[in-house]
Design a protein around this nucleic acid. Structure first.
Length: 936
RNA sequence: GCUCGAGUGGUGGAAUUGGUAGACACGUUGGACUUAAAAUCCAAUGAGCAGUAAUGUUCGUGCGGGUUCAAGUCCCGCCUCGAGUACCA
């Protein structure tokens, strides 16, 4: 019988489907939860890079199942959000339709690779039965606030009770900062609007007006993590600042817990580091400067209060809230011009202008809190409105930006560091200096100055120690169609949430779902988008009377709303009453292994931890972290091909001609390649009419291109489709080859040439069972060599799977099968455990062989073989004998010999005598069972 | 600039607590089978030098030092590449 993988794979995929082999439920067995980041169905289909993580997680799942665990290994689709919608827009179809089609295509592709997903638990974030709960969580956030006393989220009702009982007492500092102060009676007498406004400053989901990242091309607002290098992550479109009303999640309240709890989880260190940087905790002091001839004060945040006597100016951001109070009437016009100029700068321009300082003098002065000197107040966009207080103290001697600013505008640069030259640049080290010109801090170093000044500042009540975070609240509104509607309506302009009972608030039908350039949401195009408060249902817009029928929020939620909690829904996907049952949660608990890319470090992986902590605070979830262990699989890189064109012409040059002229790189589809890096010009000409007019320059009669490794992507024309590999070699070969490429967490190039080695390994394994097409196996006592080979392999493969070193597992399999082939082993007692051993890697292959040797049931629940040390014990060791550390020969000695006997044996060996040539060794080192080293 | 990670044959990559560097595979070369090709099997394969050969010998894990009987692995100083981040005061 031949290894007919196409037939075998089809047969077992059908068997698994018919027998619901991968369906799991709560049982007495211990649980193990293996999770993949679910895909967004993009329309381009899968390429060979996508399944890498899925294959690894599938191997672990199947392995754990053999080990006796009840394995939860679900899959679903992140089907709301920008990528799905962009694809729909590009192809001119409704996103509902394209999403459905893309999911179907994904499913076919995924099934071909033989994954053991329990599809009965499939979820889709765009399914109303799912997003009902995404909306439910939003309402919980809307109805919660962060209690700074207990350091956790609580229901907003408790806050209201506190206001009713104690007025602003418990939250005095916080309310002070917001400019509120009230007694309990005053609270009771506040009108609805004021109450709503005050509570809005506490809610974890809140609406606010402010500057956001606006992407005109996408027609929506973006969160910070959705912008890369000043352009949108999706599509690479420019992003600018815009003032709009939008919903936010108060994730910043969780900064410290998100940071601290990183210590609790086994996630890759680089990824944790990214989250730490993103959260960006820094310790410093906030410090108040009086403004001359004014009641106004300016609060700055600094991590270097020790440099206070180096202050020669203050700078505030153009967005600074009290800017108007500071502006001196004389300068008003030029200042307003400056602010206008700055605000229309795109994010990308700002990044490009980093080194060019700009700013304008406000016309006002502050008073130095210690020296009493007059300090000019400047306005500049090198200060960020959204970080700290939006104002900084300028210390040109100690900060490079302040230094450059001072130089540019001819401001004073007082030196406060003894014997340090600051004529060229600022000195920003925290060590190696003593302060001068600093009154009571003269002669102090960093640490002692810091202690002294903080005490002084607090004594004088002009500031206090403060911890500052970079993490900002997450912008939650998207002016797009394809997302979860926000379950809020506006009663007399005040936001009110739709009662949980009436969820889901379904996405309305609209004729035009395209995003608008002006920032209006496409949901506004719906005729039926008003809330009937009496009848508790959605109704048509023209009935809005602001008595009982009110407009509904037009923005939708961002893509990450649905993906921040999906792993819990898999535990109990069809629960209509609750987000998850207590029973399911206490059994499945949390994720044991989570596989996904590190590109989600500061997006999904941070938001989901925040959601987790929030739901934990409310007692809805039992744990405050959801994934014990995270594995970042690397990317598979594709081989992109380029040809060179003489700049501004349609003349194409080969690579040996490119040095002489200016050229531009033109990307071409790898399907035009013939051989290593030769291009089929006829194909090129045929495909792109531009090439017709072209002049080609040849190398040795052949047109050459150059190749570069890049992330695989349809837009780079370098994708390899897994279906092709499945057609040609089979899914089992694809699975094994992807693992064989290298360590799972590493990025590595795809090279189809190497695949034949894995494929012939499977054939070799297969051929051990058959002679001349017929099953030929024996059942007698196996030879000791074959037993040794088997047990060595069981040991190594088991250890390596536990370490997730899957590439070396495959090497071990190859070594074993090579050994058994030369032993001509066809003993069932050896081969049968090997089939189980390989089944997580090549499941169809294993099922078929398992069936061929006479088993009636699927191999999936067979107990994983155990190794027995007795087959592995060696009696001899082939010792390497080295002279001064250089190995010269090996000598086989019994492991029973003690060190002295070994020394004797080695020194009396004729090769030793020959090499020593009558010299006396200075020292002989014997490490038992390892090595012998003779020092001459 | 800052933070993190990585540099091993022609290629992807192996190498336990420091203990025979290059496992396994690709590629290449030679051979067997075949009318031929594919497939399969066998052998060689880090580089250099000497030898018909068995073999011997030198150099080799980015570079320069160091610790050690012994360093890809540990320490110090550099270089290069990759990822993340970017006016965060």
């Amino acid at each position: 019988m031949k290894y007919n993988f196409l037939e075998i794979e089809k047969k077992w995929q059908k068997y698994w489907r018919d027998n619901k082999t991968f369906k799991v439920g709560i049982s007495k067995k211990p649980k193990f939860y293996v999770l993949d980041m679910f895909p967004y169905p993009s329309g381009a289909g899968l390429h060979v890079g996508h399944p890498l993580g899925y294959i690894a997680s599938d191997i672990v799942s199947r392995y754990k199942r053999h080990k006796g665990f009840n394995v939860l290994h679900p899959q679903g689709y992140d089907s709301f959000g920008l990528p799905a919608e962009q694809y729909a827009i590009k192809t001119g179809q409704h996103p509902k339709k394209t999403t459905q089609e893309n999911i179907e295509m994904y499913r076919i592709q995924l099934d071909r690779i033989g994954f053991s997903f329990d599809w009965s638990r499939e979820i889709r974030t765009s399914d109303p039965e799912y997003y009902k709960w995404t909306q439910w969580i939003f309402i919980k956030m809307f109805n919660s606030y962060y209690c700074h006393i207990d350091n956790k989220a609580k229901e907003i009702n408790e806050l209201i009770k506190s206001f009713e009982k104690n007025g602003d007492k418990q939250y005095k500092d916080y309310l002070d900062n917001l400019g509120y102060s009230f007694s309990r009676n005053e609270w009771k007498n506040f009108n609805e609007k004021i109450k709503s406004d005050i509570l809005m400053d506490f809610r974890l989901a809140y609406i606010t007006e402010g500057e956001v990242n606006w992407c005109e091309e996408l027609g929506t607002v973006l969160a910070n993590d959705e912008i890369v290098n000043g352009v949108s992550e999706r599509g690479g479109y420019p992003v600018s600042k815009k003032r709009v009303k939008h919903w936010c999640l108060r994730i910043s309240k969780y900064s410290d817990r998100l940071l601290e709890d990183l210590n609790k989880i086994d996630w890759p260190e680089p990824l944790k580091e990214m989250q730490r940087n993103w959260i960006g905790k820094s310790k410093g002091v906030s410090l108040t400067f009086e403004v001359e001839n004014s009641k106004n004060k300016i609060e700055v945040f600094t991590t270097r209060p020790d440099t206070i006597f180096g202050v020669s100016f203050l700078t505030v951001a153009p967005e600074y809230s009290d800017l108007n109070e500071i502006i001196n009437a004389d300068n008003r016009v030029s200042i307003e011009n400056y602010i206008k100029k700055v605000s229309i700068k795109s994010e990308r321009d700002r990044l490009a202008d980093v080194k060019i300082m700009s700013g304008v003098f406000s016309g006002s002065y502050a008073i130095h809190p210690f020296s009493g000197k007059k300090i000019p107040i400047w306005i500049s966009d090198y200060v960020l409105g959204s970080y700290g207080t939006g104002a900084v103290m300028g210390v040109p001697a100690g900060d490079q930006r302040d230094f450059e600013f001072a130089k540019k505008f001819n401001l004073e640069i007082p030196n406060i560091f003894e014997k340090i030259n600051i004529t060229e640049s600022a000195f920003s080290d925290k060590t190696g200096f003593k302060l001068i010109n600093s009154e009571f801090l003269d002669g102090y170093d960093f640490n002692s100055a810091l202690n002294k000044i903080i005490t002084k500042i607090e004594e004088n009540k002009i500031g206090k120690s403060k911890i500052q975070y970079k993490l900002r609240d997450a912008i939650f509104s998207r002016q797009r169609y394809w997302g979860e509607p926000i379950p809020i309506y506006y009663k007399n302009d005040l936001p009110v949430h739709i009662d949980e009972k009436y969820l889901p608030l379904r996405l309305p039908k609209v004729d035009n779902f395209l995003p608008t350039k002006n920032g209006d949401s496409p949901l506004g195009n719906s005729e039926k988008w008003a809330w009937d408060e009496k009848n508790k249902k959605v109704t048509t817009n023209n009935k809005i009377d602001n008595q009982s029928i009110f407009p509904i929020e037009l923005n939708t939620m961002p893509g990450w709303a649905g993906s921040s909690w999906y792993f819990y829904r898999y535990m109990d996907p069809n629960n209509h009453k609750n987000i998850i049952s207590e029973k399911s949660q206490s059994y499945w608990s949390d994720v044991d292994m989570y596989f996904g890319g590190s590109e989600h470090a500061t997006g999904h992986l941070l938001y989901s931890r925040f959601y987790q902590k929030f739901l934990f605070d409310l007692g809805i979830l039992n744990r405050d972290e959801y994934a014990k262990k995270l594995i970042n699989q690397g990317m598979i890189l594709g081989n992109s091909a380029f040809i060179y064109r003489k700049k501004g012409t349609s003349e194409y040059l080969s690579k040996n001609l490119i040095d002489k002229v200016k050229v531009e790189k033109i990307r071409i589809d790898i399907k035009y390649l013939i051989g290593e890096n030769e291009v089929d010009i006829d194909l090129l000409k045929y495909d792109d009419k531009d090439f017709n007019k072209s002049v080609f320059h040849f190398d040795n009669g052949k047109f050459q291109c150059i190749r570069e490794l890049e992330k695989m992507s349809k837009s780079k024309f370098n994708v390899v489709n897994p279906d092709e590999i499945c057609d040609y070699y089979g899914a089992d070969t694809l699975r094994m080859y992807e693992m064989f490429l290298g360590p799972i967490e590493q990025s590595k190039p795809w090279d189809t040439r190497g695949i034949s080695g894995v494929h012939s390994f499977l054939k070799k394994f297969w051929n051990l069972f058959f002679t001349e097409g017929k099953l030929n196996i024996v059942e007698d006592e196996p030879s000791s060599e074959s037993l040794k080979s088997l047990h060595k392999t069981i040991k190594k493969v088991t250890e390596d799977i536990e370490k997730l070193s899957l590439n070396t597992c495959i090497s071990s399999f190859m070594i074993c099968i090579n050994e058994l082939s030369s032993l001509k082993c066809n003993n069932i007692n050896i081969l049968s455990p090997l089939i189980i051993l390989i089944s997580p890697f090549a499941p169809h292959f294993a099922e078929e062989l398992w069936f061929q040797i006479g088993n009636k049931k699927s191999i999936i629940d067979e107990a994983y073989p155990m190794y027995d040390n007795k087959y592995l014990i060696e009696s001899d060791k082939n010792y390497p004998v080295s002279f001064n550390g250089k190995t010269k020969f090996t000598i086989s000695l019994s492991l029973d010999l003690n060190v002295e006997d070994i020394k004797k044996a080695v020194l009396s060996n004729e090769k030793t005598i020959l090499i020593l040539n009558n010299k006396k060794p200075k020292k002989v080192i014997v490490v038992h069972g390892k090595i012998i080293n003779i020092v001459v």
